[in-house]
Design a protein around this nucleic acid. Sequence first.
DNA 1: ATAATAAATATTTTATATTATATTTATTAT
DNA 2: ATAATAAATATAATATAAAATATTTATTAT
Lengths: 199, 199
Amino acid sequence: MKILEQTSEEIKSQILDAAFERFGRYGFGKTTMAEIAKDCDMSAGNLYRYYTNKKEIAADCAGRCMKNAEQLWREILKQPDLSPQNRLTAIVLEKLNYLHQQFSDHPPLFELVMYISGERQDLVADHLGTLQSLVAEILAEGNRTGDFNVPDVLGTAKAFLAATTKFNTPHFMGTFELKELENEAREVVQLLIQGLARR
Amino acid sequence: MKILEQTSEEIKSQILDAAFERFGRYGFGKTTMAEIAKDCDMSAGNLYRYYTNKKEIAADCAGRCMKNAEQLWREILKQPDLSPQNRLTAIVLEKLNYLHQQFSDHPPLFELVMYISGERQDLVADHLGTLQSLVAEILAEGNRTGDFNVPDVLGTAKAFLAATTKFNTPHFMGTFELKELENEAREVVQLLIQGLARR
DNA sequence: ATAATAAATATTTTATATTATATTTATTAT
DNA sequence: ATAATAAATATAATATAAAATATTTATTAT
């Protein structure tokens, strides 16, 4: 039995940690496989036993980011004593803050995101699908509590996401100030929530 | 008196026509000042009597596009017998169709837009300001007719624009199908309109 | 057999020279 | 004087060679 040895998954995770650190500090293009390998005390060639290529490492990094963002939303969904309205506001502001923070702390990540957005649209689509189902949960909750009256929960969740694109998409983080985006986000969600209100 | 001569403005307009045609067909980068000049039967150097440089020509092209889009909205504002709700829907769909058409007919224009978005953010900001005031007019009309109850017309107009960013921004035209965007746009505006309804 | 490395090869990036183009200036025509 | 051009120059794009890096393969160790 291997006790002190690392499992394959643990090694992959170690590689991802090292890669993410470098991608965030120096960018995807300026990070070499040799450097990632060195950080893990292995040879460059050995990386290929765990990842088929550099793009897959990048994809996994992006995937981790997206999973993080999804987890933040799940935490908000788990919070008790939060109205559906406040949950919707919270998830939008949370994601906006997460994104803006990420890119102001680690500007080179923008390159990674642009790259993966182009190369792996499937990952982005999956992520949006997950977000949609999380929004749908909040809408369904709102229907139960009587706060909302949403016949098509999934369709409306999709529309909600579309309407909050500006606060949910890396593209705009570089162009606008966080404070301005936060204010706009609050007003947009306010409008949408009024639209959801039972009358 | 000059009767058969062109005025300076007419010449600028001729230059813009030629440039726009080439930018749309071959892209900003692949279009040379010499080519634009030849289309106008003049020397390359002479272009500089009318535009300080190539960037200014591009900026004027982008400006013309934005003015076109604004004009489309004004036509919709002028239409009689259209509810404020339908006006809002119409402007969003009109802009979306205009953008998508533009870029599917002339893909190289995307390069121009990216260039100007980066180099002349002031132009984009002005355009958005104009759009905001046009939306505000519709909201104010809605207040008058009793269809809406919007205390802060300008602020809400801004929020409306933010919420329809996905259908108003060149960036997304390449990523999504027109039909899908149209459906999403309709649903988003529907949500927003319900939010605006008097209750 | 599994895991890793080091060496070999294929790709990509970078640096550099060359060319093309943007812009300015000098010159000519009206 | 104004308008235009052609020639001159500055800048940017392109092609090419060199170097660096990604990926594969052969080899070694466990």
